[in-house]
């Protein structure tokens, strides 16, 4: 049985239209239709992810190498896969943070911590610190057609913003005589400036989120219009 692409597109359009309307019904308030759509969406998404995990994780990275190891007699590979399989079994049999599952989780946490640590150090911390310093690099500014004063001024703002923001996240405090906890005066002043920069950054992020959401809304409305016009066009 061969399903024509038109039919597939029609089925897809109908389903998409229905689910979009169901979700949009939330504008009127929480309702069962919205919930039905959400629950089905969660189920489908989970099922799909499970299938992806099977076909794109277990099969190519565990089953196929195991078959290959058996065929080639690679003991090292078999050992490695055996260990992984053992860890996988422990994780499956003891999914919670109990029992033997903790061994697998400890391995994952240890490796993940190392990767995160190294990545944060080499990929963010040092480069961003260097970026704050290089903001005053006049040669780099001139390469970007940025003037001297503009580079110095912008660099200063960036540097001040970075420092003040970091100061804002300094939560070390000392107890006062009345028992209240307050930061040092200097830190408090820096933190006040940091709040300004953080407010600006979050405002920008808010605008970006709004733009992304608006784009998604436009896409959905556009799809509805497309489906309706296309559906009606077939009948009109």
């Amino acid at each position: 049985m061969v399903i024509s692409p038109e039919l597939i597109n029609l089925i897809t359009g109908v389903i998409s239209f229905l689910f979009t309307l169901l979700i949009f019904s939330y504008v009127l308030g929480d309702n069962p239709l919205f919930r039905i759509a959400v629950y089905i969406f969660v189920g489908v998404s989970s099922g799909y992810i499970a299938a992806v995990a099977w076909w794109q994780v277990i099969m190519p990275r565990l089953v196929y190498p195991a078959i290959s190891a058996v065929n080639t007699g690679s003991s090292a590979l078999m050992l490695e896969l055996g260990l992984v399989l053992l860890g996988a079994l422990m994780l499956l049999l003891f999914p919670h943070v109990t029992g033997l599952g903790r061994i697998t989780l400890s391995f994952l946490v240890g490796v993940g911590a190392a990767v995160t640590l190294a990545g944060a150090l080499t990929g963010t911390l040092i480069p961003q610190v260097m970026g704050s310093i290089n903001a005053f690099d006049l040669n780099a500014a001139s390469a970007r057609n940025i003037g001297f004063m503009e580079a110095i001024f912008n660099g200063a703002i960036i540097l001040v913003g970075t420092v003040l923001t970091l100061a804002y996240f300094h939560f070390g405090a000392r107890p006062k005589a009345d028992g209240s906890m307050h930061r040092l005066g200097l830190i408090e002043a820096l933190a006040w400036g940091g709040r300004v920069f953080i407010g600006i950054a979050l405002g920008v992020v808010f605008a970006g989120v709004y733009a992304a959401a608006l784009t998604a809304l436009i896409e959905r409305i556009s799809s509805l219009i497309t489906f309706i016009t296309g559906f009606l066009g077939n009948f009109l």
């Binding site: 897809t12 689910f19 969406f41 959401a213 608006l214 959905r220």
Partner: peptide
């Protein structure tokens, strides 16, 4: 295309 993308996109649109 019929369930996941429309649902997520619609939810994202409501976020507006």
């Amino acid at each position: 295309n019929g369930i996941v993308i429309p649902t997520e996109a619609a939810l994202m649109g409501i976020l507006t």
